[in-house]
Amino acid sequence: MKTNIIPAIRLTIVTLVFFSVLYPGLIWGVAQLAPNRGHGEVVVANGKKYYTNVGQTFTEDQFFNNRPSAVDYNAAGSAGSNKGPSNPEYLAMVKARIDTFRVHNSDVDLKDIPVELVTASGSGLDPDISPKAALVQVKRIAAVRKVSEDAIVNLIDSHTEKPLFGMFGPAKVNVLGLNLALEKL
């Protein structure tokens, strides 16, 4: 023990400087060359800055709604609901969300409501929905905004991000991008 304690402390100090100062410093330098210099991807519209990858609350009928969030899209405190699959309280909540969705989208069949629109994401900040989840909202948005359904369907098509290299992972639509485009329609 005695022969080890001094070398242990000295080696700790040296490696501490290396791995928690020099290494992140180097990565910080690399990030200066990355998009938006390592501040996370943002989009600026109408003079306002939004984080592309951070979901935000969209509950109004005029916007594409996104998924429920356990933390109300608070990007300073991410979390999921952590509700177990058999929790009766949770299942009642899902049922209530389905009912709410049907009130706002009265012409959508029950069997067409995608499950992700009534279940909360892991981070509470999911920025995306599936193309299907966007398409079921077209009728409502067209009616509220008084634009043609075709125009909105085209918008979804042009904003759908294909799987990685066309092969890997799910297709998705960024809700923020979709709603910003909707505002310009």
């Binding site: 609901s81 995608p114 499950v115 992700e116 279940t119 909360a120 999911d126 929905i129 992972g169 799910p170």
Partner: peptide
């Protein structure tokens, strides 16, 4: 169709 989505992310 999307599976068990409670606690999961759309992009994953």
């Amino acid at each position: 169709g999307s599976g068990a989505m409670e606690g999961k992310e759309t992009r994953i």
